[in-house]
Design a protein around this nucleic acid. Structure first.
Lengths: 217, 217
DNA sequence: TTCATTATTTAGACAAATCTAAAAATTTAT
DNA sequence: ATAAATTTTTAGATTTGTCTAAATAATGAA
């Protein structure tokens, strides 16, 4: 059994390792709102418990055991978010902090019953996928952003062009992995797309739209 | 803001002071599964925060502030129990430990929305009363279900017949402790009652109705 | 490659909540 | 009323998670 704090570290390491692996001490410190020295201390502890692999100065990766634990926390977090939005009428931007607490409640029965009660949702209110009880994420079909129509909503789940100029361009527009988008208009004459990212209107060319992969939901 | 541990102490002191006031150190130690010395330490801390009145060797009583906090935790605990039983199909004897964790989630919005979602229950699955958001316990006057009229609403808070055949019958009809009911019709010729339980219409005989105790609200 | 900068770790300290063992107060029994 | 038993408190130690400041390693630039 892990403490509340250990669980939080595992979760953060899990999220950060989707961006870069291994995960560096400073990256964790920034995300968890703490000091690098504290992170080092905790990493040592997690390493002793064989939840992470740790090489001094090189960063950490999750072990299988650590990954399983982390995914379970993510599962709980996202299920609770669905509950809050679908059942208690929270807005999708009001749920995070409460889910952050609820994700640490220890009861497998609770999680499974909640999943059932919510009718086994595949994504949370932000469009992020919810792993099943075995830690598997459903295959979410990728669609090119250029195939979407006005009012379509989805989550950016990939790109089909990996040049750094392209990625930097997306970064600048705020079109990063995991962001929710909504199509406002597709302009006839050049196929450029007007869309909404985090309540911000943006316009991207058809060329760019073709290389952004979306999961509709 | 109180810590998880402080909240637990306040809750236990609240419960124990219904039996004897002031509450003695050893009584707390026993209930909270800890040592008397630890209790003394914590009581001093709670006293500094003006959540309890403490006289060495004499025991503690809750201040108004402490009592308000304690009642709010009891409120949350019991609402979560209703949620677990009514919505997630937990059995009434499976809910305590999970509710013990859920009661510490910090979010007024969550509690109020949950209360609403559960249709403002007045008692938990064990029949214990649930205080409202101002900390007031409803006056729980028992009325026989057979005395109610169409459109009357209430909560099942007891029975006046304890044979297992009767209880099993009620169980089958979904007429269990804590359930909200609404009277639809009382039939003239046999006095049988048509009522609504969780959006389900049910009909019970006058004999059965006489032995179900209701709290109107 | 050497110096400067940045990132990470170590060492030592602190607050919260707990514990054990000993001391002090209270209660009970004779 | 005094001794014995019980309860409660104090003193000092421990664990968890954190911190600051200093030391060390890695990285980047000239």
């Amino acid at each position: 059994m892990q403490s509340y704090t250990e669980e939080n570290y595992l979760k953060i390491i899990y999220h950060l390792s989707e961006i870069s692996n291994p995960v560096l001490t400073n990256a964790i410190a920034e995300r968890i709102q703490t000091k690098a020295a504290s992170v080092t201390d905790m990493i040592k502890k997690l390493s002793d418990k064989e939840l992470v692999n740790y090489v001094k100065y090189q960063g950490v990766t999750l072990t299988e055991k650590g990954k399983t634990t982390a995914i379970n926390i993510v599962r709980k977090h996202r299920l609770w978010e669905v509950f809050l939005v679908d059942k208690l009428n929270f807005k999708w931007d009001e749920v995070h902090d409460v889910a952050e607490e609820l994700e640490h409640i220890q009861s497998n029965l609770l999680v499974e019953r909640l999943d059932e009660f919510l009718d086994f949702p595949r994504v949370d209110p932000h469009g992020d996928p919810i792993p099943d009880k075995n830690g598997n994420f459903a295959e979410l079909a990728f669609i090119k952003l250029s195939k979407l129509k006005p009012t379509d909503k989805g989550t950016i789940t990939g790109v089909s062009e990996h040049s750094s100029t392209f990625l930097k361009h997306l970064e600048k527009l705020g079109l990063t992995l995991g962001k929710r988008i909504e199509i406002i208009e597709v302009l006839e004459f050049d196929g450029s797309v007007e869309l909404l990212v985090e309540s911000q209107k943006t316009n991207i060319s058809r060329e760019v739209a073709k290389h952004i992969l979306i999961t509709k939901n």
